[in-house]
Amino acid sequence: MIEKDFIPGVAGTLPETGTIRWQAPSNIALVKYWGKRPGQLPTNPSVSFTLDTSATRTILKYRRISTPSKAPEFRIYLDGVAAPHFSDKIGTFFERISVYQPFLSSYEFEIRTENTFPHSSGIASSASGMAALSLCLMDLERAIYPDAKSDMYLKKASFLARLGSGSAARSIAGGLVEWGEHASVPGSSDLYGIAYPFEVHPVFRSYQDTILLVDKGEKQVSSTVGHALMQGHPFAHSRFDQARQHLDELQPVLKEGDLPAFISLVESEALSLHAMMMSSNPYFILMKPGTLEIINRIWEYRRETRTPVCFTLDAGANVHLLYPAENKEAVRAFVKEELLVFCQDGQYLQDQVGPGALRI
């Protein structure tokens, strides 16, 4: 598919007022994407676990206005409080999607959003937030274009979400989600995420994610800046090739439930991501001393107990601890006994692979 396929046809009757509610999850990438091309397109494909309880709930209220405006009018609230600091981000999002949802300029919106996880907790709220808002807007579009193809609904929701936050493309479907065109993944696209199309061993369908909050402060370098620093990066093309190779290697691993191979690949991906940060120009480090302490404790615990637990990292200091559901009691005891001391105020979140976005 190409971008113009997401431009709707002739509109029907525009509803006057209404309220739409969606909940969308965050996600944690196993094979990371780092670096963007124009149009919020990824420089390499990626695959992620959709989380379950770490989600954004959004209520969209809309009212038709008598004279269409140049840009949609909106007010945004976070946790019940006006959040004008998000206005620029939402305004840019509406500008990007206006050609694909031309009816937006005929409405004013009230956007009320809340996260099920604490602010600055190391969870990608931009991904879940943009996914939830996109699904609300798709419900409005469906009311205006009732003859639209139903199989386009989730594709377009992911397409729109990507224009707000790249990784939001992976926060629509549940389980494992792939985003980015890749020759060996049928149906893959840079424009939207898809449900992972290959066989997945049952062990990965209930995988656990304990999120260790090492540092809840604002990152000194944003992900947007970090992505941009891949332009001209001396190791960029090698990294993009590595991600594609890892995506291919992951296919039999996920099919066979090969946990040692899964652990090796996922940890390599996490460290490769941060290696790109440390070797960019300018260079930067987002890991903290507690991050390294946790990684070393995980390695030691895995070596001594043979428990199939591993870590991954997003673009930050916090650690995602991944492990099979059958090991959760032992791993959670390990977390409390040895890892919480390295977390800010001893805080952590407990999550697992989830079913994807839900209308609420």
Rank of each mutant, 00 (worst) to 15 (best):
I2N: 13
D5E: 15
P8F: 05
G9T: 03
V10C: 08
T13H: 13
G18P: 00
T19E: 15
T19P: 05
R21K: 14
R21N: 13
P25R: 03
S26H: 05
V31R: 07
G35I: 03
L41N: 06
S46E: 11
V47A: 05
F49C: 13
R57K: 11
Y62G: 01
S69C: 06
S69H: 10
Y77S: 12
A82D: 11
A82T: 09
P84G: 08
G91M: 08
G91P: 07
E95L: 14
Y100C: 14
I111G: 10
N115P: 14
F117Q: 09
H119N: 15
S125Q: 10
G129D: 03
G129A: 03
S134P: 10
L135C: 03
L137D: 12
E141M: 09
A143W: 02
I144L: 08
Y145M: 00
P146Q: 00
M152W: 11
Y153S: 00
L154G: 01
K155W: 04
A157G: 00
L160Q: 00
S165N: 11
S167N: 11
S167Q: 03
G175H: 04
S188G: 12
D190L: 10
I194N: 07
P197M: 09
E199D: 12
V203N: 06
F204R: 09
D215N: 08
S222D: 00
V225T: 13
G226F: 02
H237S: 15
R239D: 09
R239Y: 15
Q242L: 15
H246Y: 08
E249N: 11
V253E: 05
K255V: 04
A261H: 09
I263E: 04
S264I: 00
E267C: 04
A270C: 12
L271M: 15
S272D: 07
S272W: 08
M276R: 05
N281F: 14
P282T: 06
F284W: 13
L286Y: 14
M287C: 14
W299N: 13
T307I: 04
F311Q: 01
D314G: 08
G316Y: 00
V319Q: 01
Y323G: 11
P324G: 09
A325T: 02
F334L: 01
E337K: 08
D345P: 06
D345R: 11
A357G: 03
